[in-house]
Design a protein around this nucleic acid. Sequence first.
DNA 1: TTTAAATTTGAAAGCGCTTACACAAACCAG
DNA 2: CTGGTTTGTGTAAGCGCTTTCAAATTTAAA
Lengths: 333, 333
Amino acid sequence: MATIYQVSEAAGVSLATVSRVMNGNARVSERTRKKVEDAMASLGYQPNAIAQSLASNRTNSVGLLVSELHGSYFGDLMSTVEQILKQNGKHVIITAGHVDEKREHEAIEFLKSRRCDALILHAEAVSDDYLKQLVDGNIPVVVINRKVDDLPDNCFVVDNEQGGYMATQAVINAGHTEIAYISGPLFKKDASDRLAGHKRALKEAGIAFKDDSVFEGDFHESAGQEGMLHFQTHYPNLTALVCANDEMASGAMTAAREAGFDIPSQLSIVGFDNVLLARYLYPKLTTINNPIHAMGEMAAYWVLQHVYNIKSPIPIEHLFVPEMINRDTLGNL
Amino acid sequence: MATIYQVSEAAGVSLATVSRVMNGNARVSERTRKKVEDAMASLGYQPNAIAQSLASNRTNSVGLLVSELHGSYFGDLMSTVEQILKQNGKHVIITAGHVDEKREHEAIEFLKSRRCDALILHAEAVSDDYLKQLVDGNIPVVVINRKVDDLPDNCFVVDNEQGGYMATQAVINAGHTEIAYISGPLFKKDASDRLAGHKRALKEAGIAFKDDSVFEGDFHESAGQEGMLHFQTHYPNLTALVCANDEMASGAMTAAREAGFDIPSQLSIVGFDNVLLARYLYPKLTTINNPIHAMGEMAAYWVLQHVYNIKSPIPIEHLFVPEMINRDTLGNL
DNA sequence: TTTAAATTTGAAAGCGCTTACACAAACCAG
DNA sequence: CTGGTTTGTGTAAGCGCTTTCAAATTTAAA
C-alpha cells in the first residue's frame, strides 16, 4: 500500500504538496498538480482514510443508529440517509440498537469512538436525559421519530396523534361504529400518541370508548393475530379494526381470514406506517403513511447543513404529517 | 474529550501503561491497573478508535457490501453478519453497490480506504477479474452468493441449479406438465443457473422445453406481472408458473388474481428465496429457501477465523443446499 | 545474602496524514 | 529596478494511539 511519502518522492515534491492536491483546496500550480496526480496513478495510491481522519479531526462519516438492520421501515431509512449523504461525499456507519437500552447505548458510544462527524439516531430505548446530554456534548446529533422535550431542533417526528386520528376517522366515515384497536406497547410514545388520536376521533364522532375495544400489542405480527383472537371473544360484534402498525394489521388479517371473515366486506382493517409489505398483502392494506423517507431525508440534509456547511436544497422542518393511503381493506358499512 | 495522555497523568503512569490496561493483553500489576481504570472512569475516557487503528493497523471493523440497504434479503444478510461479528467485538461497515459496476467498485474502494480488516461482498456487477485481484491483494475477502472460478475458498453460494431443479420438480410431482417460467436477468449467474435447473427437471420428466414457456424478468415485482400477462397470450394453457424469485412470484400472483385465476386451484405458483414477504402473501407462497442467513453466518465465521484467529464454532462450508418450503400456492392437478 | 530470572514499567519511535508557518519565486505598480 | 503582494512549496509539529526496547523492580533460587 503506497503512502503519501512514496507519492511525494515519485513526484519530486513534499508531503504537504501531495496532501494539497488530494484535498483540492489549497493552491497548487497546474504543473505540480499534474506531476502528483501522475505519481498517484502510477503507484495506485489510495489515501488512508484513518490517517486522514486522525490528522484532520474529520471522518466524513456520519453514524446512523437504527433498531434493526432488517425490516422495510429501517431499510427505507438507511437507504434514504445513505443515498443523500453519499451524494455529498459523506459516508454512513450503521449500527443496530435492538430497542435495548444497553445495546443502544453501546452502539452510540461505538459511533462516538469512531469519531463520526454527526449522529442520526432512531433511538427507542435510551433515556431522554441521555439524549439531551449527547446533544449538549461536542457531537451534532439528530433524533428521528422521537420527540424529546427541550430538543425541538434536533428531532424529526411524524404527528402520530394526528395519524391515529386519521385512521380512525376514515373508519368512522365509512360508517363503522364498532371499532376495535390494537395498539403498540404503550410505554412507547408513538404507540400512546396513536392511541390518543384514535380516542380523539371516537370522541369527536360521539362514539363511546370502551376499554374492551383496545388490545395492547408489541408491534409484531403475532400480536395482530393475538389481538384478533382476543376480540373474537371480547368484542365479537366489531366491524372494523384499526392497528397501530402494518405488521400487526397483517397478523390480524391472517387471523381474521382463518376465522372466516371476508375482508373488507365483513371486517375492515386499517394499518399504520405504509411499509412496503402493505402493498403485498391481500387485500392490499389501507393504511396511514409514516413519512420515514422524508424524515430520513431531512435528517441527512440537516447534517449536511449543520456539520458540513452544505446548504440543504429543501427547508428544514421538524414535524411531518401522516397521510391516508386508501387501498382495499376498508369497506363501507 | 480526554486523551490517553490525560489519563496517564491522572493515574501517574506512562502512556504505555494506560495503553496496556486498555488492551488487556500485556502484563500490568493489579495496583496500577486499578489506578488507571479509576482515572479512566473519572475522566470519562473513551479511546479514540481512529488513533488506535492508525497505530495498530487494525480497525476491528469488517466491510460489508450489499446491493441495497432495503429489502428483506439484504436485511437478513446484514443482520446476521452484524450480530455475529458484534458478539466478537468486531464492527461492520455497510455500503451499498446498487448492482452497478461503478458504484460497487467505489463502495469497495471506500471500504479499503477505511482499512477494514476484511471484506464481505455481495457483489453482483463487478467483474470476476476484479474480485480475483482483490483476493490476491492484502485484504481478506469473501464473496457471498456468487461463484468465482479459481476462488473456491472465498465464495459462499447456494446451489442455484439444484434449487431451480427442485422448484420445477415439485411442480411436476404435483401433476403439472404445462409449466411456465419467469427467469431473472440471464446475464446473472444465479438467474441462469436456476433456469438450467428448471430445464433439467423438465428433461428428466420427459417434458419438452418450449422457448415460449420462459419469460426473462429482472427479479422485480413488476416483471412478475409482465410475465403473467405475457403468458396469458403466449402460453394460455399453463397450469403452473415457477418464478426465479419471490418478488416476481408476488407480482405474478397479483396479475393472475386480477385475471381471475384462483391460486392454487387454477394456477400454481412457486417462488425462490423464501424472503420474509413470502409468508405474508396470500395465499402463502410455496418457495425454495435460499439460505442467506446461513451464508452470512458462515461468511462472518470465516472472517473471524481467518482474520482474527477466533475459531469458528461450525465447520466452514462453501456450498449451501436449497430447500423446498411447502406453503399454499402449489396445488395438485 | 547474593544472583539470576521473571515481571512491571517508561521512553521514544512510529502509524500516514493535515496544517500552521516560513520562505522562495513570480508578479506588478510606481 | 525597487519594494510590496501574491502565489507556490517545503519544514516540521502534531493528531492519539501502539509497541519495541531497555531499564527498573520484584521474585525466586541458591
